[in-house]
Write a protein that binds this DNA or RNA. Sequence first.
DNA 1: ATGAAAGCGCTAACAG
DNA 2: CTGTTAGCGCTTTCAT
Lengths: 339, 339
Amino acid sequence: MKITINEVAKLAGVSKATVSRVMNNTKPVNPEKHERVLRAIEELEFTPNPVARGLVHKRTGLIGVVIPDITNPFFAELVKGVEEVVREKNYNMILCNTTHNMEKELSYLNMLKDKYVDGIIFMTAKVSPEHKEFFRKSQLPVTFINRKCDDIHVASLDIDNYQAAFDMTTFFLKRGHRRVAIIRAPLTDKTSGYERYRGYQEAMRSYDIEPEESLVMRSNFKIESAYKAVKKFLKEQQPVTAIFATSDLMAIGAIRCLRDHHVQVPKQVEVAGFDDIPMASYYSPSITTIRQPIFEMGRKATRLLIKEVNREIIKTRNVTLPYQLILRESTLKTPVTGE
Amino acid sequence: MKITINEVAKLAGVSKATVSRVMNNTKPVNPEKHERVLRAIEELEFTPNPVARGLVHKRTGLIGVVIPDITNPFFAELVKGVEEVVREKNYNMILCNTTHNMEKELSYLNMLKDKYVDGIIFMTAKVSPEHKEFFRKSQLPVTFINRKCDDIHVASLDIDNYQAAFDMTTFFLKRGHRRVAIIRAPLTDKTSGYERYRGYQEAMRSYDIEPEESLVMRSNFKIESAYKAVKKFLKEQQPVTAIFATSDLMAIGAIRCLRDHHVQVPKQVEVAGFDDIPMASYYSPSITTIRQPIFEMGRKATRLLIKEVNREIIKTRNVTLPYQLILRESTLKTPVTGE
DNA sequence: ATGAAAGCGCTAACAG
DNA sequence: CTGTTAGCGCTTTCAT
């Protein structure tokens, strides 16, 4: 039913080795036979079976992409970047959605290894010992996004989350805010949680303000979770004049909640986010945020990975990308005058 | 370096055929040898090479998923649904992002066929003759989402887009609106463009209003495009009291634009969307919309496809799912009294 | 019940 | 330059 190299060889009157040579330009072939083979291939609409090829070459042309949540615009954008390069380089992408669940991460990792993918792009909250163990054993090329990992030999891409959070917080402080609250992700999340929180704390201290525990709202990465956190905060705590949400999605949840409780943004409370997902500029009010080069991160990570797959020499295995503070309506009130 | 079935056979002191039998439970095996094989597998941490298996079985365990834009929350949600079932059934998903580009669709389709995927979930604006040709020739199991296609033998899932748009428009008309504008997608998009537009027109006619061309704004699926369309509309046309955006993303672009031009939503103009993406309920104002069972659609489509792959009997190959009108703030003004 | 052997479709080493 | 041959790692007759 399906055309194989044998049919082509027969029709062209050559051996299948010759057909293979023609297809792959791997060795010189007599021009006339060359022509006949090409014609036969076209005639039969032959396309080589990649599975058979894979068996010989131990390559599948597959890249595994492991992310926590495809419905989070941050990851969607990232995946789009990955996809572009993967396609360009003639690979295909296996997408794995882990719903922030470590069991799934591990099980997917094993699945991917068993599927013989050529490399993995991996995003997780926290690189656990199990993860490291996996990467060490599997010997698979891996690149991390959003996460550094020094003790195992993998590539990684991220921005300086600490410094960015520091800058964002300082932006508030510089304009006179003193009670700056933070909505943070779980600290188990190294970058989005821990690093950004640390940046906030240090910025506060740099203004001689000891960060109060009461100014911290805990949330995961969902809009709804931030909404609830703010609701609780409004009920239990003294008012603040600024809230630093450590992701745009959380900022949206926060703003929505504030408005539902008749707190005007930015008039009464200013809010900032992090990431600069597309919605940040279209939300109303539009959201002041830290722009990460998300799409570019996806592209760069993939290029890096594919180099690794091809055992090319890589100069810098760990890349830190630039970020940018983007001012929008959610912080557009006239600067507060400090005490 | 990598453990193969031969190592296992040797260690267990049996032939590799026996190992294969044990792994696949394909034929009875002497209990004692059975045990030895199992032990050897564990000892060596052997996992069979799926590529080799694939070569024999002509199965790859791969499902291709072709979508226009992963950063569109509608598709992201869909993919999440697909992923869940794909994983559950022990397949893997190859994600293909076509950026609404037909060249890419076709090229991806061919790539997927060449990769020997077991089936394809396909989303496109319009099923072109080239597409049909492809599906006819490839004989690959395919299921369409959001699109019916009668003349070729494929499964499909969608909602009644015509009726839903009719209902949405009628909702406005019933409450006294007469000048109801529409933001529509290109008519080349069969369901999101054409069907929804037709529903709008017929609803207008059912109220004895001949739909005016001047009430139609043209947009693609991006927020920004709707923003621009509304901006142009405000400049050139008489005011309206209601706008039916045929997707939530377009509704967001519309609302944002109206507010930027100091038109209050819903006070001066009511706006409705379509799809019910998560952001629809968190935007401010929250958006009245048609809820499509997006996630469920993804799951159902995948189950259907996998049945098809396994040549199971399928009762209904073309499924129409229910939708629901969801009322939110963007249309919450006191009902307009008609003329 | 089980091992030997053939073969899935392709590539690569070898000999000419 | 080119055909023959030997695998890649697994499944599946086919004998026994």
